[in-house]
Amino acid sequence: MKKDIDNHIPEVEHVYVVAAFEYNSIFKVEEWTIYLVNDTTEALETVLVVSKGESKTKTTSVLRKKLEVLPAKSIAKLEFLHEDVLEVDNIFQVTYFLNGKLMHKDFKFPKYSLKSKDIKALPLLTSKGIIAE
């Protein structure tokens, strides 16, 4: 395990957590759906995603998701965000291996940052939305 960890973790590039503003035909509502986007030319391996929402007064339950592989130029649906959690900071901690190197980045949607008026084109998706910071 120690051999897998460098003294410095490389900067994550072309991997995103996005919130797509999509129509749910089952419930007949517009909702925010969270995706992990791999816009690199290589597969991501052993992908671990931990997400939670938090503020000074509220904390949501923690979601953990594991993907064995996320192929190059592909997406994975993680979850949808209910209206109630838009009033807290939503944090997605993403860890994976790329070409044998451990990679990690915390992606964040600050509270009240998901607004339909701010949507724009997203990488690899036909839906529009917002890219996490």
Rank of each mutant, 00 (worst) to 15 (best):
M1P: 08
K2L: 08
K2D: 02
D4A: 14
I5N: 14
N7F: 14
N7S: 11
H8W: 01
H8P: 01
H8C: 06
I9G: 04
I9R: 03
E11R: 15
E11L: 11
E11V: 10
E13F: 06
H14V: 01
V15H: 06
Y16S: 05
Y16T: 05
V17F: 12
A20H: 01
F21V: 00
E22L: 05
S25W: 08
S25E: 09
K28Y: 04
V29A: 10
V29T: 15
E30D: 12
E31K: 04
T33Q: 11
T33N: 09
I34S: 11
Y35P: 05
Y35D: 13
V37G: 00
V37H: 01
V37I: 09
N38M: 06
T40G: 10
E42Q: 15
E42M: 07
A43L: 03
T46Q: 10
V47E: 02
S51Q: 11
K52Q: 10
K52H: 10
G53M: 09
E54T: 12
S55P: 00
S55N: 06
S55E: 07
K56T: 07
K58V: 11
K58R: 13
T59Y: 05
T59V: 09
S61P: 06
V62M: 02
V62N: 00
L63Q: 08
L63H: 07
L63R: 05
R64G: 09
K65M: 13
L67H: 12
E68F: 06
L70I: 12
P71Q: 08
K73V: 05
S74C: 02
I75Y: 13
A76H: 04
L78T: 07
E79G: 00
E79F: 03
E79N: 03
F80N: 10
F80V: 07
L81Q: 15
H82N: 12
E83R: 13
D84P: 04
D84T: 03
L86Q: 10
E87D: 12
E87H: 12
D89P: 09
I91G: 01
I91Q: 13
F92L: 06
Q93D: 14
V94S: 13
T95R: 09
F97W: 09
N99H: 14
N99C: 14
G100Y: 00
K101D: 06
K101A: 07
M103A: 15
K105T: 02
K105D: 03
P110F: 05
L114Q: 00
K115V: 12
S116C: 04
S116M: 08
K117D: 15
D118C: 04
K120E: 10
A121P: 02
A121C: 03
A121W: 01
P123S: 13
P123F: 08
L124S: 01
L124T: 01
L125G: 07
T126G: 02
S127F: 00
S127N: 05
I130K: 07
I130T: 04
I131L: 10
A132H: 12
A132C: 11
E133D: 14
E133R: 09
